[in-house]
């Protein structure tokens, strides 16, 4: 089994709202100082899904990311979790690429890698929350895709995917090669082991340029973008909160009860 996992470096989605700031002139997020970027949590779960398959069937896992040199940290993290190879695709011509361009670049990288049975992505990157790139990669490679998996199993050369829907579950069976995007219901991503960290630290991570993956420059960067970001604003949803106070919990509970009585549904 040759498995490729696409991982993205993002601003920590658990960052408290008070620390989240934007540059209104340039429509950009200002990353707060001293808070490290993280691997997109859904992508860590995609790595986990790959590792589970490898634990059972053996195989090789390659993680791939598009970004600058700083993305090395998340690649090493995935290696420490148990991935076999890491790869960074980096070029200034990729800056400000939209989802289609990112999907195209990943597909070009994957074509250069050559062999793959299964490609795993996150259901969405928890920064811009698009959930588009996986589908674009699948379209460029001409392979089937199922999104939002909670369980991915390889059985007899096919892949069985249980995925979450709004009100339940669906199981699909796909021919390989296929692309699957992974949702939070998969569970928890394993922590890197001590030995994994040591091994990952010295692992060489190749960096491929646009040229090396034979990029058609008309398909990447800002000018290829099909949508334009006009404004990025921080909304305010604050309400004026009145706190219930009282001598003791009896009184507080009684006041809450009468508030609820006012607003319950009368049948």
């Amino acid at each position: 089994m040759e498995i490729i996992v696409c991982i993205k470096q993002i601003l920590d989605p658990d960052l408290p709202p008070a620390k989240f700031m934007v540059d209104k002139e340039r429509n950009k997020v200002i990353p707060p100082e001293g808070i490290p970027f993280v691997i997109n949590p859904y992508d860590a779960l995609a790595v986990e899904a790959a590792l589970k398959i490898k634990d059972e069937k053996g195989g090789k896992i390659t993680v791939i990311t598009i970004g600058d040199k700083s993305t090395e940290d998340i690649v090493r993290k995935a290696l420490a979790m148990g991935a076999d190879e890491g790869l960074i695709i980096s070029d200034t011509i990729f800056e400000e690429s939209d989802s289609f361009a990112v999907g195209y670049i990943l597909a070009q990288g994957i074509k250069k890698i050559g062999r793959y049975d299964l490609i795993l992505c996150g259901r969405q990157a928890a920064d811009w929350d698009n959930g588009v790139v996986g589908s674009v990669v699948a379209e460029y490679l001409g392979i089937p895709i199922v999104t939002r998996a909670k369980d991915v199993k390889v059985v007899n050369g096919r892949v069985n995917v249980e995925r979450v829907t709004t009100d339940g579950f669906e199981t699909f069976e796909l021919e390989l090669p296929a692309l699957i995007t992974v949702s939070s219901e998969l569970g928890q991503a394993r922590l890197p082991s001590g030995w994994g960290i040591i091994k990952a630290a010295s692992k060489e991570i190749p960096i491929w340029s646009g040229k090396e993956i034979e990029t058609d420059i008309s398909k990447v960067g800002k000018k290829a973008s099909r949508n334009q970001l006009m404004r990025l604003i921080i909304p305010s949803y604050e309400r004026r909160c009145e706190f219930i106070t009282g001598e003791d919990l009896h009184e507080i509970s009684a006041k809450l009860t009468s508030k609820l009585m006012e607003r319950r549904i009368h049948e």
Binding site: L11, L15, F20, D127, Q228, L232, P235
Partner: peptide, 12 residues
């Protein structure tokens, strides 16, 4: 976007 921390206005 960003889990609801910001709103983006995007033109086609």
């Amino acid at each position: 976007v960003f889990g609801g921390k910001a709103m983006a206005e995007i033109t086609s």
